[in-house]
Amino acid sequence: MSDTSTNAVHIFERHRAEMRASKRAMNILALVIFLICLALSMWISNFTPERLANGVPRIFEYFQTILPGLQWDVLFEGRNEAGRATPGSLTYWYTDFWTYMSLIWETILMAITASLLGAFGAFVLSFPAAHNFAPARWLHWVSRRFLEICRGIPEILLALILVFMIGIGPLAGVMAIAIHTVGALGKLFAEVNENASSRPVEGIAATGGTWVQQMLYGVVPQVTPNFTSYALLRFEINVRASSIIGFVGAGGIGQELNRVISFYSDDRVLAVLILVVLTVTVIDLISERLRLGFIGRENFA
């Protein structure tokens, strides 16, 4: 071992010690800033331990009011001759079961329609919104800003406005979710496009293809698997969104959930909640399977 190499070690160690010291200082500073922000937000939102301690029992109180009074001996009893359900039976608890189911079906259809519409809009806009493929800088700027506006407005707010514009019902909900989907999915699609290879695009350009043809033949085949995967992911999110959006009158199961909460606040709330959670979970599982299956197949092709 020569002197010069031990010297190199010495210099490196000193450099490393300096780096670590400055990094530690940065970490402490970040921690202090974080704590200040936390304290501020707790103070502004009145988040105090007493309030939390007072509130927790009330959560359980509420749950008690929405729990069904099921009784084991009559649990599976159907309707009697007069067509009345026995209190304490499942039939009594889920009297409106088929109403709920048709609303859940409506919710799923809303999510599918909104996802398809949104994915189509996102697909079209993702090419001018990708900086490497945009045919003109102003078009790139316009499509980027448009996507930002679409995803910047919360779905529920859009739905509220659309309910005023086109009336209560699922159409307002579908439009609201579709617009938000265009913005959210369009950004993701554009980023996928930005990672696509430009070589095939150049190849198509050299044959005399138009810009649309360059996108269709050069880019689309490269990005289809990613687009599909993102669109399915967005569909999962949209199922959740469309079950909430009814709170402002935009159709689906959310409208019924809002109704039973504000009018009855009894076991019907829990009945609807259970169905919503089940639906979202089942859709998530199916869509995840599809997505993984699709990506997996692509990787082994």
Binding site: R199, P200, E202, G203, A206, T207, G208, G218, P221, Q222
Partner: peptide
């Protein structure tokens, strides 16, 4: 461009 075809070092085919 259609009259004046080009081939490239990296082929520039559409792989998929």
């Amino acid at each position: 461009r259609s009259d004046c075809a080009m081939i490239f070092q990296q082929f520039n085919l559409v792989g998929r």
